[in-house]
Design a protein around this nucleic acid. Sequence first.
DNA 1: ATTCCGTTTGTGAACGATCACAATTTGGGG
DNA 2: CCCCAAATTGTGATCGTTCACAAACGGAAT
Lengths: 355, 355
Amino acid sequence: MARVRKTVTIRGVAEEAGVSLQTVSRVINGGPNVRPQLREKVQAAIDRLGYVPSLAAQRMSGSRSYIILAINDRERTLADWRDRMGTDWVDQMLLGGILTCSKHGYRMMVELVDTHSDHVERELGAALSALQPDGVILTPPHSENPLITDLLAHRGIPFARIGSDAPGAGIRLTMGDAGAAHLATSRLAELGHRRIAMIAGPAQYSLSGWRIEGWRRALVEAGLPHEGLLEVGDFGYDSGARAARVLLDRNPDCTAIIASSDQMALAALEVARERGLDVPRDLSLISFDNTPIVRFTQPPLTAIDQPIAETVSRAVEQLIARSPETDDSAVIEIAAALVERASTAPAPAKTPDHG
Amino acid sequence: MARVRKTVTIRGVAEEAGVSLQTVSRVINGGPNVRPQLREKVQAAIDRLGYVPSLAAQRMSGSRSYIILAINDRERTLADWRDRMGTDWVDQMLLGGILTCSKHGYRMMVELVDTHSDHVERELGAALSALQPDGVILTPPHSENPLITDLLAHRGIPFARIGSDAPGAGIRLTMGDAGAAHLATSRLAELGHRRIAMIAGPAQYSLSGWRIEGWRRALVEAGLPHEGLLEVGDFGYDSGARAARVLLDRNPDCTAIIASSDQMALAALEVARERGLDVPRDLSLISFDNTPIVRFTQPPLTAIDQPIAETVSRAVEQLIARSPETDDSAVIEIAAALVERASTAPAPAKTPDHG
DNA sequence: ATTCCGTTTGTGAACGATCACAATTTGGGG
DNA sequence: CCCCAAATTGTGATCGTTCACAAACGGAAT
C-alpha cells in the first residue's frame, strides 16, 4: 500500500522553518522586508519539502490566478484541425505563450469561442468566471469584436488585441500587415512584374484592409496599375481557387499574385498548374502566413512570415507587467519578414503566349 | 466610471433563490435528493445571474479541479515549432482533448516537460502541485518513463499512457502501430514490391518496436526478406536522410520504403530526388503520422494516419469516468488507417537500371 | 536611558466552494 | 392520528493562501 504522502502546504513549510505562514508567503512572492538570513532559511525549507503553492488557493485568497487565457476562433480552428491543415496560429500562440508564461510563473490556457454565435458573451463570460484569468489574448476576429472587448473592459480584465488597431481598451499589437504587403509587392515590382494581383482576406478583418493598402501603395509608388487586380477570399482553399481563376481570366497578362493566406496561395498554385502556367516562370506567387506546408510544395512558396509567436510573447509580457490603469494608446508593431523561396522569379520577358 | 459588477458567487444565487448554499451546490453538481421544483427555481436564479462556479474555489473545497493535464516532450515540441514543422501531436491532442474536456465541463492544459533531464520529477511535481489536475495524459516518450509513471501512481493521480503497453499503473492506449505497419507493408507487397525497407524510430520508443514487428511479420507472411532492410532514425529529417542513403546504397534493388515519421519520409523523398529516382515509379514511399505537409509534397505521400485526436479523446473520457480503483489491465487500441496518395505504385517491372 | 519611527514578524479574517453531519420535512403503514 | 425511515434542506467546519492590521524588534536622535 503506497503511503500517499500528505500534500505539502504553506503550513508545513512554516513549521519546518519555524516561522509564521505570512513569512513563508512573503518569501514565495518575493515580498519585501524579510531578513536575508530568514529568507534563506525559509527557502531551504521550501526546497527540502518540495513545496509548490497551490494555484487554486492563491487565486482564492484574492491574489492573481497566474493564468493567461488565449481566445481563438472555434470554427476556423476546428475546421483546420479536422482537415489536417495544421493550425499555425494555435501552434505559434502556444510557442510564444507557453514559454513566456512559464518564464514568469504563469500558465496559458487555450479557449475556443464562436465569434458569430450570439452567445459569445455567455461562452466567454463562463470561461472568465470559471478561470478568472489575469489576462486575455484576443486573436482576430475576436480582437475586433466589440461584444468581447466590452465584456472584458467591463469586467476589468486586462486584455491584448492582436491584429486590431481600432481604438478602445486593451493593449493593441499588430504584425505590420501593411508593411509586409508593401514589401512583398515592391519585391515583385523590382523583379519586373507589371501586373501584380492580390487575393485579399475578408473585409471584416482589419488586417485584410491593411494588406490591401500596403499592396496598393506599393503599386502606386512603382507607377503600376491596380484596377481589376483585387479579389477577396475567406482565407480558405476553395475561395482562393475561385479568386485565382477570376483574376487570371480577367487579367491574362497578370504575372504575379499575392495571397493573403497560405491556403489561398496553395489554391492559386493549383489553378496555375491546371492552366499550364509554370510557377515561377510564368507566374510568381507570394503567400501570407508561412505555415509549415508551404516549404514542401512544388515549388516551395515565397511567403510572409507572421511573427505570431513573438507577438503573443510580447502580449503576455504586457499583460503580466500590467498595472490596473496603464496607458493603452500605443500600438505595438512586430514586423513581419519576407521569406524568399522558389515561387518568385523575374517577370517573363514578354506577355505569356495567348493564342 | 464603469461600475464593475461584483462577482456572482454561490451565496448570491442562494439569496436570489431563497435557499441555502448547499442546495445551490447540489443543483450545480447534479446532486441527488433535490425536489424538481426547487431545482428549477435554483437553476432559474443561476441563469438569471449568469452564475458560474469558480474553479479555484471548487478545487479548494476538496472537490475536483476539472483540469486534465497533457504532457508533451518539450525538446521535440519546441524544435518542431521553431523549425516551423508544425506540431501535429499538439494540434491533434488539443483537438481531441479540448472538445472532449469541454463536453464534460473540464479543461485541458498543455505542459512541456524534458524527458531526459534529471529534474523531470521536480518539473512535473511542480506542475502537479500547482494545478492539481484530475488526470494526466502522457504521450511518448513520457508514457514509458518509469520516473514519471511512478510519480503519478505515488501521488494517486489517474493517468493515461499513450503508446505504451508496458505493464504498470495507468490506462494504456495504443494506436495499433504493429497493425498499421503490417497493413502498409502488405499493401506494398500486393503492389508487387519484393524489397521493402523500413526507416524505424529510436528504440526507446516502444512504438518503434511495434512498427518493426508489424513490418517484419508482413514480410514473413509474404515470403519476402527483411535482412539489411532496416535502418533506425530519430524521427527527424536529417536522420531520415542518412537512413535513406544507407538503405539505398546497400539495397540497389529496394523499391519501397516505409518511414516511421513524416519528416523522415520527406527526407527519403529528397534523397530519391537527388539520385534521380522517381517517386512512385522507381520507389514507393509510405510514412507514419499523416501531418498536414505530406498532402502538399510532390507527389503527395501515402501515409498512415495516427488517430491521435480520437485516442486523446478516449483517454480523457477514461480519466473523467475513472473511479479511484479501476482496473487498468486492458489496453485500449484505436486503429490507425492507411491513406493512399500518389507516393505508392506497383513495383517497377524490372530492377531499376544500375549501370 | 528614553522616545520615536521604520523594519521585520505574527495574527485573525476572508476568499468561494464542498464536506460531514444535523435538522427538518415528507409519506406510508399501523 | 402517530411514528419511523427516507427524502430533502440547512449548518458549521474546512481547504491553502493572501490581506489588513497588530505586535515586536532595532537603531538613531533626543
